[in-house]
Each structure stands twice: as C-alpha cells, then as structure tokens.
Design a binder for these strands. Sequence first.
DNA 1: CCTTGTGAATATGTTCACAGCA
DNA 2: TGCTGTGAACATATTCACAAGG
Lengths: 237, 237
Amino acid sequence: MSPQSDPSPSANASASGKSSSKRAKDAIPDIVIGRLPIYLRTLQLLAEEGREVTSSQELGERLGISSAQIRKDLSHFGEFGKQGTGYNIPYLIRQLEKILHVDRLWPVVLVGAGSLGRAIANYQGFESRGFRIAAVFDEDPAKVGEAVGALTIEEASQIPQRVQELGAQIGIIAVPVHAAQRVADTLIQAGIRGILCYAPITLKVPEYVRVEYIDPLIHLQHMTYYLGQANGETGGA
Amino acid sequence: MSPQSDPSPSANASASGKSSSKRAKDAIPDIVIGRLPIYLRTLQLLAEEGREVTSSQELGERLGISSAQIRKDLSHFGEFGKQGTGYNIPYLIRQLEKILHVDRLWPVVLVGAGSLGRAIANYQGFESRGFRIAAVFDEDPAKVGEAVGALTIEEASQIPQRVQELGAQIGIIAVPVHAAQRVADTLIQAGIRGILCYAPITLKVPEYVRVEYIDPLIHLQHMTYYLGQANGETGGA
DNA sequence: CCTTGTGAATATGTTCACAGCA
DNA sequence: TGCTGTGAACATATTCACAAGG
C-alpha cells in the first residue's frame, strides 16, 4: 500500500549495461524501477487517446511484457487497480509520477552545445514530463553567448556557480568522449547527483552519484549481433 | 536493466532494459550480448591509450562489473585470454567485432531531419564502429533537398526504393511520436529488419524485426526515483 | 605469483495459477 | 463474469572459488 523509495543503488546503469546494486532487503529492484517510466509513458499515450481505464493485459500487449509482470511491478508500490475493472489511467499516472518524483519540475544543466547538445536543448518533450533544461554550457569560448532556443550558451567555468543558483541536481553530458570524465568531475564537484551521459564511456563517479548512459552504437551493435546471422552468419537466438 | 532493448520476440522498452525471450537452449543470453558492445567500446578506448593487454579485473573496474562476469560472458564465445597474462586487446577487439558483426559497414537509413535527426546524421562516430548513415528522409516536403552534412534530405516516399538500392537492413527513427509507428511500418515494408527508435513509444513490429529504443526521459525518470528521496521527499518510505 | 575459464552455489527475476472481490 | 494481487514454482543471471596454465 505505501509507496516506497529506496536508497542504495550504485552508480551505473545504461543504455545497455544495467549494473549491480546492493539493495537493502526490502528495497524495490532497480529493474522494476526501470520499467515504471515505460508504463508511465504508455499510460500518458492512452490518456491522450482519451482512455479512462486500462488493464494489465492491455498494457502488456502494448509493451510486449506479460500482464503478470506489470501487476507484480505495480504491486510493489500499492494496490492501484480494481478487480474486474483494471486501472484508472489518470489515477495511475499520478501515482507513478509521485513514485518517480516527476510530480515536480527538475532543473537540468546541459554541458555540450554541439549538434547533439542543441538537439537536446531544443527537445520540447522534457517540460511536460518533469524536466527543464535550465542552462547550457560549452567549453569552447567561441560558442559562449550564442543562443540555443531560449537559452544562451554559458562558459563551462560558470558551472559551479550556476548549478548552485539553479539548485540543479541533474546534469546531461553531451561532449566528446575525451572531455566527458572531466565534465563529470566538474558537475559532481558542483553538486550534481545524477548524470545522463551521451558520451561513449563509463564514467568513474562516487557511489552517491547515479549515472545513466545513452549510446546509439551500443544499441546498433546489439542489433547487428542478431541481424548478422540472418545474413548467413553464425549467431544468436 | 532497464528495459531499453529487447530480444526479438516482443517489442520492448526504453533506453535500456532487457526483456524476455525464448531462446533455443544453447543460445547465448541476450543480456550477455548487450554487454559485448560495452566491452568493445572500452577495449577500443584502451587501445587508443596505446595499451596492448588487459585483464578481466581491469575491465571490470573500469566498467563497474565483476571480473567473473566478464570472463563468463566472453567464455560463451571462445577462449580469448591467457592465464597469468590476460587478454590481448587488439585481438579481443577483432573477435568482438566479428561476433557482433561489425567487422563490416552497415548502411543505415535515417528518417526524420529535425534537430535530433541532424545531430545523428552529423555524428562522426558511426563510421569507425561499423555503421554509415546512407540516406536521410523527412515527411516534410519543405525539407526535401536541404543538405545535412554530405547528404541531401530525401522524400519519405522514396524509402522503399532507396532501402532496396542501398541494401539497408537498419533504420533509425527520429520523428515525432505520432509519426513513429507509420514510419516503422514503411521501413519494415521496405525490408528493414532492425530499428533504432528515438520516439517515445513501443512499436508494434513483426517478430523478425528487432527494435531498440533510446529515450532520455526514461533514463531521467529512472534517476529521479533515487534522487527524490535524498531530496527529503515524502515519496520516500 | 598472476589470471583465465568454469562448475556449483547463490541471488535475482519472471511466470503460473488461483483466491478473492467488483 | 473479468480482473487484480500474490505466493509458489520456475527460469535466468551473477558470484564464488578453485583447478590449471603461463
């Protein structure tokens, strides 16, 4: 019945490797937490279609996940459904938003104003889902002062001060791989506790910092393992 | 894991995650395959540092994974190491490239030439890792003809013909969520068998098509679950 | 010594299948 | 009836710990 949160998990997870974590015996598995945003996203899509209720079965079909898994995942946090009926969509959305702590707006600082950084800064989907890009930094002095959407690129040296002012706890790293660790260190030093890293490198961070990774090459190479064989190769499944 | 990629059988989740799959009894677990690109990436970084050999322990430390796991993962494919010494880096890189089928250049078609699509098209990291963006399409006729790097944006209606000509088996979807399923259907119809989807939706695809997802919001929300409580939140227990 | 590769032990995750309630 | 929530069964993944090779 009561929503929970938990402490522990270690720093890594990613666009591919999820990493280990020692959790307190009663903590909710990280893998379960990882599915909640997907449930939320799907429920929001259903809500936009004007739907009021859904079932674990319908969600499961949409997601390619078993209905039992969805029920069990949600049951870690409470009893959100009604027997015979299913789940009330707006209610479940609110609950998930609370559980994931996106029932608020998190200021996020972005480092890196190359084409990827600009694409991230321009993405309109953050605000309605709990996040606002509050500042953009770049290490290249030549870019400082340029506009990116409604923001102006700031000097990387301003990171500590600005993170403070903004009360940001989350940073996005969109710089070349060779600069990524340095930027991560700066962000952490400035007080950032969660990092979304687009650079293709596993960052070294203190245990209290959570890092998530996005790397399209990891996904493409994962895919080609399977594609290869149909190509007349040895291979997997 | 986060549910961000998944094995073929069903379409799955987000920017990370692994899901179920029925595999032949002797097939290698999908979760193992998912780690190989990370090993490869790390080895390539070590190679750039001029290193010749490494050990499962060193790799494990860099990745936050146990050395035993790395050894076991690799042991599915052969015996690549030498007792007392470790692994020869260039050799292991070649082996992994072969296993993942990136010992060749895969032509990839990209659909969506908004700021995200352009950032993807401009990314210089694909070529050296087995992929080449071979064509860019957009559904907006106004964009057709514009240049994106060395490529010219083509009409979406050209997809079937161009996929054929290029022999592409992989497509990247970087269009708004409402167009994503339609684009996926078009790509699959054209012969694409692997999709990397940046739109925040789980695609419905035939079982022979593999889909991987990238969605920064999934990662950010995964992260805020843990950040929230340290914030002194209710949500917490 | 050091480090691999691996069976056995452990830990974790998923599905089954059903009681119980709308 | 139709659906949830859940313990028990099953399936999968990770770690341990050590024999054996350089």
